[in-house]
């Protein structure tokens, strides 16, 4: 393993850690819409895929899950521990890994176009529910209809709003990050 990361690697490492922190802090950040606050946590998972790409997106989410697994208070509501991964909502947390990878991959493959970003986030959301709801059913023994009613349907409107918000966020911040990356690559090239 490279013991002295390049500036670009160091930037990506810090950004991946930053997104892990955003995902953790996202459970405490909410936009109050009427009586129900919309929590931003899973929007940051989608944004990690869009802005960091599949590899560093996975690194960020992986660090978030690792920190939570060893007991740090990063899961929703400041909890942590292996019990959360084995509990009813563990499937959603584990699903963040393939979801962020898929979002990053589809977004990169479609060149960051609007329709590609939307498709990537819809796919990521489907992966989260595709793993989370069966896991919830398996752990709690609920019937399929109840598992979907409790673990998916109430959140779909909020998810649609988060995808709608993530599109302008990614389109605003991607050029900023790309500019930084290009500047770092040029600096490393000039250093030889």
């Amino acid at each position: 393993m490279n013991q002295n990361p390049t500036t670009l690697q160091l930037h990506q490492t810090v950004y991946a850690s930053l997104f892990a922190a955003l995902i953790a802090a996202g459970a405490f950040l909410a936009i109050p819409i009427g009586p129900v606050p919309i929590v931003l946590q899973n929007m940051f998972v989608l944004l990690a895929g869009l802005l960091l790409g599949p590899r560093w997106g996975i690194a960020g989410v992986g660090i978030y899950l690792l920190a939570g697994t060893i007991g740090l208070p990063v899961f929703a509501g400041g909890t942590g521990g292996i019990g959360r991964l084995l509990g009813p909502t563990g499937g959603y947390l584990i699903a963040y890994l393939p979801a962020v990878w898929a979002v990053g991959l589809v977004s990169r493959r479609t060149g960051g176009r609007l329709i590609g970003d939307i498709a990537a986030m819809v796919l990521g959301t489907l992966i989260v529910y595709g793993l989370g709801v069966p896991y919830l059913k398996a752990v709690t023994g609920m019937p399929w209809a109840k598992a979907a009613a409790v673990g998916m349907l109430p959140f779909l409107i909020g998810d649609a709003l988060k995808i709608a918000a993530a599109v302008p966020i990614a389109r605003t911040l991607r050029p900023v990050m790309a500019g930084r990356t290009a500047a770092l690559q040029a600096r490393e090239y000039s250093r030889g």
Partner: peptide, 28 residues
């Protein structure tokens, strides 16, 4: 709600990316 989420998040991410860049410079 979409505009509110986007406005808050863009401003937040811009600021913390700048903090992250300063941290990288300090680490280097």
């Amino acid at each position: 709600p979409v505009a509110r989420m986007a406005v808050l998040t863009i401003a937040l991410l811009r600021r913390i990316f700048e903090d992250a860049d300063r941290l990288v410079a300090a680490m280097e």
